[in-house]
Design a protein around this nucleic acid. Structure first.
Lengths: 219, 219, 219, 219
DNA sequence: AATGAATGAGAGTTCATTCAT
DNA sequence: GATGAATGAACTCTCATTCAT
């Protein structure tokens, strides 16, 4: 749990510490990050850190929580204006990839929680999935998508996003094992090559689609 | 890179070290594991470790390599006898979940590579995906599945497996965000509840299915 | 040296601080006690502490001083009504043991002064001994006790009280090295088992006794 | 618990560490002593310390144990040749005072155990007392001393020694509250002024004496 | 009179790695 | 081939004390 602020000055210090932690964790990972590096970057004394956080793990958890909100926000942006479920899906994935692309190191922080603070990671994924489930259920009620168990589908979609994001956003567009014919130039819709993004959406469209998988999603 | 063996005695010591490392990494994670705990478990002196491995990271890499082979073996078991692509897929996922269920801690080791030795993780995923791609391409040539980019599809499938495995194998069958109506009793096919497994296969069947998503996969 | 009071409000704050310090030192010992724990218990800000005391050591000294008075008071209670020196002695020891039994942790605070503030301990013992000396000298003048050097006798008596108190009050009645046949049930006179108390008084009676050391001390 | 040696080299390092700890604890007290000061004095690296001791407390305990033996040895020296119990007592006290005088700071280490490792202090006193009890019982069987409970008597004697030793050995011969007529010059028998020592022995002689307490103690 | 945020020195402890034997 | 004693840098965290408000 956090601690001491209350005053405006304290609140400011806390924010600086949190921001510094974000950068340091992103740059070095949890283990290599040190509290002293964080305080140094924040421009405060080492002891000050412990006025605001109980431990190194405590800031980490708070950070994951914070990132969870930002990721979810990035995902829901644009999804609101979507008229079909697949459009919403498109927007969600695009938002997620964009966030990952803009803060590649940061998103690694979230994933590192699996080894640092498992409960935090669980919470992170669970919250995202919950949003998904609602949307899927709605689309099912509207007869827009197939009647697959929305929970299972939500986790599957989550996995697709994580893996495609890791492969094409984090590792970059080329690299070993890269999808040969992915077109690195075009990238209007998302941080992932258009071709990859489109194929992924075709995959998802087929999975969720009613009757046949022709939902599509041509760019 | 490794070092010294050559003799039979040396080869044995090396194997013991590797096995000890497997247990210690599985139990404590990379950071908390210590070389001395490894050597202690292996029953050799601390210095001996450096006769066989250059560093702590070195054994870790070798371990990930080793696990990669075992996971791929678990996945391809049974897939060989499959007559359709979806059957092969079923067998592959079942093998993967079984492996994860039997060595839950071990598979975490692989995933931790993202933060310890990114190249090793890349290699791990890439190799698995390569196998997939071949199979998918073949099925496409046979007109059995849709003509989606096999690379993209392979990574998507990989992501589904990882996420479903984490959610239902690693975290257990219940817990927050659990699939409400999943049937925890039956579990003939895999380490994941039958219902979840079946729904996942329906999802995949739809994604890969030709024309309509009729692949299905009722148990 | 202390500081700021003067007003009634200040005097009250000071008392609360002192009382809080007493509890915190008793519970944790000097080193483990922290100023912040003291102020927290007192319900005042951390800075307030330094308005009343120069340092952590300063409160400690004041506390030892305070305890010295309370111990001496406990010892002299009842001793006043005594008609013989040995009766007075009895009452003094009983009072000391009672105090120790009622505030076991507190009396440890006094003893810890040896390592924290040696001068304070010296003062503590010296003051107690001074009272003794006067009484012993008087009894000698009255021909009631032997003509032993009262200073030496006083320190010896002090040592007996401390050690018997530590052994039977602080450590409890049983334990290793316990006086085998001590009767734990009866305990009318003091916090030490009756048998132990009586034997101790016989010991002292012999030491101080005129002519022969026989007798005395039967409860 | 200790650890690693076995080799002659290790045994030597261990001894150096122990000796360094003795000096550092004696000079600064437990709290102010730091492991780094100990290793510095021992001329080894900081990490080496933890090869031989589990913690700072661990060396401390071992040291108290060690001192216990040395004190008991100092006390029993000379006592062996004694023909009466009181002579043995004399020799024991003299040995104790001598030890305290020769290692004044060291003996404080033992006493500090009350606040650092209470069990160790208990053990220390209990062991010494046990030796006493045997001697006293023997003397009683021989009809040499009064039939006082030997356990109570032993703890009382222990207390006398500790207090007189603190007052006249540790604090020095003069000082506040000093025994006015103590003769600082003569000091043949012990580290305590002769007069004090003699008076103390008279006190003890009276306490233990058969029939009358009048004898003894002449220097 | 009172506050509490800020400090920074320093504590105990761990560990990957080296190297003389 | 094997050992294990030795290292020292680095870590997280605590705390008495100060001082602007």
């Amino acid at each position: 749990m956090s601690a001491a602020p209350r005053t405006a000055r304290g609140e400011k210090t806390r924010r600086r510490l949190l921001e510094a932690a974000e950068h340091v964790f992103a740059e070095h990972g949890y283990t290599e990050a040190s509290v002293s590096r964080i305080t140094e970057r924040a421009g405060v004394g080492q002891g000050t850190f412990y006025l605001y956080f109980d431990s190194k793990l405590d800031v980490f958890d708070e950070l994951v929580e914070d990132l969870n909100q930002r990721v979810r926000h990035a995902m829901s942006e644009g999804a609101r204006g979507a008229s079909t479920r697949l459009e919403a899906e498109r927007a969600g994935f695009a938002g997620f990839f964009r966030f990952t692309a803009e803060h590649p190191a940061l998103y690694r922080v979230v994933r590192e929680a699996e080894f640092v603070s498992p409960g935090a990671l669980r919470m992170h994924y669970t919250r995202i999935v919950e949003g998904y489930i609602d949307g899927l259920r709605q689309a099912q009620d509207d007869g827009e998508i197939t009647d697959i168990d929305p929970t299972v589908a939500a986790w599957a979609l989550m996995g697709i996003g994580e893996m495609i994001g890791m492969r094409w956003v984090l590792w970059g567009t080329g690299g070993d094992g890269a999808g040969g014919d992915a077109d690195p130039t075009a990238s209007g819709t998302s941080a992932v090559p258009d071709h990859v993004f489109d194929e992924m959406m075709r995959f998802i469209g087929g999975a969720l689609g009613r009757g046949r998988g022709e939902g599509e999603g041509g760019s």
